[in-house]
Design a protein around this nucleic acid. Structure first.
Lengths: 191, 191
DNA sequence: TTGGAATTGTTGCTTTTCGAACAGTTATCG
DNA sequence: CGATAACTGTTCGAAAAGCAACAATTCCAA
């Protein structure tokens, strides 16, 4: 099972080159030849690993989606519990090596490969089931409140991923204020 | 020629890993297995490229020595002419990609592989022939003055290589003052 | 000093990658 | 529109890298 080191290396090189070019030239006008030239591999090798550039993008999006999927439960619970500082620390810890890659992939929006949309969808589902479980008495539609919570959380994630481990103090406060407003809606409290 | 991309890549990986380990563990206690593990290559591949770790070091020292050898004439002339700013700019320009590698190799002193000693030897030879050509009337031994000039120039080079493209203004002045003192000795002027 | 562990070079065999060609498909531009 | 350039996806033999095993040092601590 332990793969041949060469496969690991070429996939690493191809993916690194892909991300770099994605950042500069964008996805649409990127050719397989471009990627291979930058990765110092041959095209035939590329096709031994991926069907085409779409497959490469798919696999990478799936990869980072899976990583986030394995953390999303904890992340959501921390959000609800208001443990914003800890949530941010954990997120940055988990994503440390992948931060740059995720930041780049977040800007790519292809029909069946949209990392940002995947993250958002996972969070939205969490919010929906959470709100339903609360049996809110609010007049506002459940879907709206779920969308609100998701948006707030996604905005924070994007901010952290692009800005890295900068000062977190003010951020936590700001997020917390908005978070409480959303949760108040869920509880059904009228102002 | 060594045209196959794979050769280029493995040598690049091996040399990068080697430099990195050289910086952390030093040369003596470094094993071929260490290098290969860090470079993600196999030992048999290593031995297909190098005789042993000494050969690897030799080749790298020879490589950077050759680069410096191709610049040393211009570099020395700029030193004599007092074009310190230009000299520094040119040096950093030429060495931009190799700065880190040279800085690391400068700390390695093996019997037949000493980059720092090679640099110094080249400069010393330039100073010696220069001074002889001037037919100095100074009472001081030629070898002493040559050693002085070489030391001053080497010190500057080491400073630039370790400190990079930081402010150059004050450096040029300081070097120039010392340079003039040395040249005054060459001219034989008694204070 | 000695015995086990680690390191060295070397080897045979397998797997992967390379490079160059190929026909077929899409852009690009005058 | 037409052509010609670029890109795709595939194939092939040759070259390189990987891997595991080996005996032969060398290291190092008991």
């Amino acid at each position: 099972m332990g793969q041949d080191v060469r496969k690991i290396k070429t996939e690493r090189d191809i993916q690194a080159a892909f991300l770099s070019l994605l950042d500069t030239k964008g996805f649409r006008h990127l050719t397989v030849a471009d990627i291979c030239q930058s990765a110092l591999t041959s095209r035939s090798t590329f096709y031994a690993h991926y069907l085409d550039k779409y497959d490469l993008l798919d696999q990478m999006v799936a990869h980072y989606s899976a990583i986030f999927a394995s953390r999303v439960d904890l992340h959501f619970e921390q959000m609800i519990a208001g443990e914003i500082d800890q949530m941010i620390t954990d997120l940055l810890g988990d994503m440390a090596e992948n931060r740059q890659a995720i930041a780049i992939l977040f800007k790519v929006h292809e029909p069946n490969a949209d990392l940002q949309a995947n993250f958002r969808a996972m969070l939205l589902k969490k919010w929906q089931t959470f709100i339903v479980a609360q049996q809110p008495k609010t007049a506002a539609p459940i879907e709206l409140i779920a969308a609100m919570g998701t948006t707030v959380q996604m905005t924070l994630i994007e901010w952290e991923i692009t800005h890295g481990e900068t000062s977190v103090a003010g951020v936590a406060d700001a997020v917390n204020t908005i978070r409480e407003a959303v949760l108040m809606q869920v509880a059904g409290d009228e102002k």
